[in-house]
Design a protein around this nucleic acid. Sequence first.
DNA 1: GTCTATACAGGGATAGAC
DNA 2: GTCTATCCCTGTATAGAC
Lengths: 215, 215
Amino acid sequence: MSQVAQSTREPLSNGEAAIRAAAGALFAEKGFEAVSVRMVAEKAGVSKANVFHHFASKEGLYLAVLRSAAEKSTHLLGEVAKASGTHAEQLGRFARGHLENLLEDKHVTRLLLREALEHGSERGRELADQGVGDGFTRLVAMLTEAQRSGELRTDLNPGLVAMLMVAANVFYFEAAPVLRHLPDVGFSDDPQGYSEGVMNILLHGILNKKGNTNE
Amino acid sequence: MSQVAQSTREPLSNGEAAIRAAAGALFAEKGFEAVSVRMVAEKAGVSKANVFHHFASKEGLYLAVLRSAAEKSTHLLGEVAKASGTHAEQLGRFARGHLENLLEDKHVTRLLLREALEHGSERGRELADQGVGDGFTRLVAMLTEAQRSGELRTDLNPGLVAMLMVAANVFYFEAAPVLRHLPDVGFSDDPQGYSEGVMNILLHGILNKKGNTNE
DNA sequence: GTCTATACAGGGATAGAC
DNA sequence: GTCTATCCCTGTATAGAC
């Protein structure tokens, strides 16, 4: 609706970009309804009217933010998969990278999660869906390949395994701040250790194979 | 702030209860800010002013809703654990019951998840924390016991295992509606099958133990 | 306990000068 | 492109009759 990325210098305080950035932070932190255009304008250092000059409506602004968020997310994920090693190693890398990405851009992650939680409003549902869907499909493909090579059990639904891997990461993002206060949780500040532990469990299971039934 | 549960008959349309119920549904669906007192009043079949008669403010109403939500949730979880069988069976029951509970009261679940996602507003954070914290602690205890008996590997952090189990369920709740549209996901309408599959993976791992490297 | 009527603050959005 | 000033609506909350 207005030309962007024409002169690449001064990306931050050139109005539109500043507004988008401010809005992104606020929407991620508080949610759509809790954010007023006035707040966005203040944070961006422009006037309220100026926001409406660049974006047709508050909703349009939100969609723009969501769009760039989704793009960023999928792009980051694309970089992860290309590497060598056993499939198990590759999966581990994927998991670690995925978690890193989630944590690196908390804004984006929060925004996407929040959007996924809203069933009522159709605001940007497809965008969020597509964001996670892409990464998910890639992961499933990787798992299927690992099954075909004989490295993984073939009696498991690869979609289910993928889901478990993603679930572990997403839940870490959501719950680590909460669980930090509990005992028995030593990993809430160590995403890498967490990722390792998770992959260990997923690969080998939690059952004790040594056959001893007591100590 | 006003006496409740005094006469147990007519629980629904006695004003306060109706308001609480309506508010619970709306808050869960749309979030705090997106819900207006007028909407609540309409859905409850009372006047706007009447809502303020029963609850001091919109925030007070929200807290009341959240409180009863948390209570309900923890109570449900308490029922699950008491049963016999191997520890593995018990864990499986726990996981299945937990997921059932999440799905049974989608209102409550959504509400708690949403609250957990807000780091900014301190509205009812402790309540939500305590809700999940309780179930989590119970689960960790169960796992530790299983380790002591020799049934589970002792080189794993039980908190991490617990987290993975909860993560699987929570993520199912969050993502099943989204992932339904994807290929390779056959379980999005079958929570019980999902739960079984997850426990299978957690117990035995995903690696192929048969040693064959191709087909 | 329930209503109607109202106060008043803040929301999104537009007009028009610069 | 950016501002000030303004419009109109809806938000929360209160007053006071029934």
